[in-house]
Amino acid sequence: MPSKETILTKIRANRPNLWPLPDVPIFETLATDKKKLFIQILERGGSKVHCIDDSTQIHQVITTHFPEDKRMVTALPFLEGIEGISTLHPDFYEGTEVAIIEGLIGVAENGALWVTEKELGNVRVLPFIAQHLVMVISEKNIVGTMHEAYKILGLPTTAGFGVFIAGPSKTADIEQSLVIGAQGARSLLVILTP
């Protein structure tokens, strides 16, 4: 008997009686100011947050944060003067110093930002391989909790990969000492637009 049948047969013989599946309510955050909480949690997790009034200021914020001539790549369609990810050869992904992408949903309770491969220009490795990551998100897209986030996300339709990113990559594997910049991005800058 192939293993699939063996496993399913054993489950049918051994499973408990039907246990009801609960309906989980959409718990909301008690915080009155979701934007404030979002920023606070992001900063607690080692990210930087910069609020701007107008998306034309994105470029300036980025050059202020990265004054040296760094190799930048963007998956945003409207950033002029920065190389677009679609024209970059895969051999050069590793040399990316700064990657600039858009976050679709921000979650106040944990500072996580949702992106799919579409926002990554179909380069799934982009937010991990870049030395530094910049995520642009409108404050209108901040929700309170993960329940609200998944309610908006619904079921995936086209994207084959999606990820919540909640800060720079980190580890505490050596004596529980927090080190920012493990295998992925060394820093996360979140730019909040109106």
Partner: peptide
């Protein structure tokens, strides 16, 4: 909401990756 808070006290893991199809 439960996993990382229980594990390390973080509000969520830095990356929560949803893999649906091959590249």
């Amino acid at each position: 909401r439960l996993l990382a808070r229980s594990a390390t006290g973080q509000p969520v893991t830095v990356f929560t990756s949803h893999h649906r199809n091959p590249k």
